[in-house]
Write a protein that binds this DNA or RNA. Structure first.
Length: 501
RNA sequence: GGCGCCGUAGCCAAGUGGUAAGGCAGAGGUCUGCAAAACCUCCAUCAGGGGUUCGAUCCCCCUCGGCGCCUCCA
């Protein structure tokens, strides 16, 4: 398969070539665990989850490493505020983060290293840098000298002398260069610390990702990813340290996801305009968040619109509700196919599926593959998926036109194509009944209608219809619609769905 | 001051040097007690101007309008 990815380092799409044939090592910068993950985190980890899934689908043996930064200034401060230790605080947020990822159907990476478990590697790396003349010791820590690495600035595309250094950063005149950064921070009183040749302290930001990625993947590994905001200085610094410490190439392909925007502005902690995954998952089925995020190519900005009340309170997320509707559509399609297959399989053996349908399925398989192979275009892939779903429903609507044996084969082929897409994209993978139940429950919670009340209304309306009292039946339906619930009379009984955001 | 991104239908959003996927909303149908669901049909010339080209939405330049990074951030 001809796979191309956009490499931030070269600012262009290029053919993907691995260091070792058939194998991919990828490292993604994970969260600093001092707070709940927000939609921006969700975006990054969903995108790289699809990347890992796709690479496996393409036949590679993938080693996916995603770290937890469990010690840094923010962790220390937050733990202090909360009256706990950094270790307990970090563990709490790692647990919560794991729950969030599970709800987003982000698969657990192969290795999830924590900084505090890798002090040995980190200290050794700092030591190597000092020995090679790239690090120097000041009274509060060890620093990396960016002027000692002539490739500095290559990733972020900037020249050292053109940056407005000092405009926003307080210049520490002890440092040899304002852009020099800490490799090791000596501990102040009451700060957690680990022993080192320079005294007790903790790792600076950046060094942990270099040390851990190199430990698990080795120099010159294939893909390093993260949000675009990490390009500078984090990834730039990682490259500098790693190349200087090992004397070898660090990473082949750098991939960065775009931001999540709220009202056109970047969602960020400092602006305070962020929403956590948990907040969103209270209002919609969490898989809808994933589907929503996958609707935009991973490098572009995602418009995450928020509906606010006149007083400024959170009302809802229209985009997520729309995505949830598509989610329900997808699962309903899967369920129709499954039920039809079960009915047919009980009485018939599969025959030859109609040519047109086989063609549509084959076209889809190829379109899915080539969309993802072209810089992981999951947004395009979802477009193809929508087309296949429509094809499936159309086929089911007109199924009687074909003999049962052909129908059975066709339904199986459709299910196979949909399952492949589900596995690669990580959507529509759940049991359809369970997923639809969950989506319905979310909707009822949103509109504030108890299930018992809904069931009762449906019962009363069914009775009214039985006695042909259509006026009464229509009244009940209108009342429910007013409250955001739409009824649908299906052959097997009355079904419902929530139509209000 | 430097570097960079974006502007595609009411909204969200792919994409390509040869006349623009998909979704939501909307209109008209099939179906239905009526509806809904599902399906069918319809619905854009790609911010503006100039240039290159046989031909540009896609390449170049300019203008306007958004935004990002250069500080912690996915």
């Amino acid at each position: 398969m001809d796979i191309r990815f956009y490499n931030t380092l070269h600012r262009s799409k290029e053919p993907f070539q691995t260091r070792d044939p058939g194998r991919v090592g990828m490292y993604v910068c994970g969260p600093t665990v001092y707070d709940d993950a927000h939609i921006g985190h969700a975006r990054a980890y969903v995108a790289f989850d699809v990347l890992a899934r796709f690479l496996r689908f393409a036949g590679f043996e993938v080693t996916y490493v995603r770290n937890y930064t469990d010690i840094d200034d923010k962790v220390i401060h937050r733990a202090r505020e909360a009256g706990t230790t950094h270790g307990e605080l970090a563990q709490r947020y790692i647990d919560r983060y794991r729950e969030d990822m599970e709800r987003l159907r982000v698969l657990e990476p192969d290795v999830t290293p924590r900084v505090t478990d890798h002090l040995t590697e980190i200290v050794a790396m700092v030591q190597a840098l000092v020995e090679r003349g790239h690090g120097y010791v000041l009274d509060d820590g060890v620093y990396f000298s960016i002027r000692s690495y002539n490739g500095y600035g290559r990733l972020s595309g900037r020249k050292l002398d053109e940056m407005m250094v000092g405009a926003r950063v307080e210049v520490d005149d002890q440092k040899h260069d304002p852009l020099d950064f800490a490799l090791w921070k000596l501990a102040k009183p009451d700060e957690p610390s680990w022993p080192s040749p320079w005294g007790p302290g903790r790792p600076g930001w950046h060094i942990e990702c270099s040390a851990m990625s190199l430990k698990y993947l080795g120099p010159g590994f294939d893909i390093h990813g993260g949000g675009m905001d990490l390009i500078f200085p984090h990834h730039e610094n990682e490259i500098a340290q790693s190349v200087c410490a090992t004397g070898r190439e660090f990473v082949r392909t750098w991939m960065h996801n775009g931001f999540v925007n709220v009202n056109k502005e970047k969602m960020s902690k400092s602006l305070g305009n962020f929403f956590t995954i948990r907040q969103a998952a209270e209002l919609v089925d969490a898989e809808a968040i994933r589907l929503f995020l996958l609707g935009t190519h991973y490098r572009g900005p995602v418009q995450f619109d928020v509906e606010l009340s006149p007083e400024g309170g959170l009302v809802g997320f229209p985009g997520l509700v729309e995505a949830e509707r598509r989610l329900a559509y997808g699962y309903e399609t899967v369920r129709r196919l499954a039920r039809t297959e079960a009915q047919l399989a009980a009485k018939h053996a599969p025959g030859a599926a109609p040519e047109a349908l086989l063609g549509a399925a084959a076209t889809f398989d190829e379109a899915l593959r080539s969309a993802l192979a072209d810089d992981l275009n999951h947004a395009e892939a979802l477009g193809h998926l929508a087309t296949l779903q429509r094809t499936a429903n159309d086929f089911l609507d007109r199924a009687k036109e074909h003999p049962p044996a052909a129908r059975l084969a066709a339904v199986r082929r459709l299910r196979e194509a949909l399952a492949t897409a589900a596995g690669v994209l990580g959507v529509f993978e759940r049991d359809a009944d369970g997923a639809l139940g969950g989506i319905g429950a979310c909707g009822l919670r949103r509109v504030g209608v108890p299930v018992a009340e809904l069931d009762d209304a449906i019962r009363r309306r069914t009775e009214a219809r039985r006695t042909k009292d259509f006026a009464a039946a229509d009244r009940i339906r209108a009342e429910l619609l007013e409250r955001g619930i739409e009824l649908m009379d299906a052959p097997g009984g009355t079904e419902w769905r929530v139509v209000k955001g």
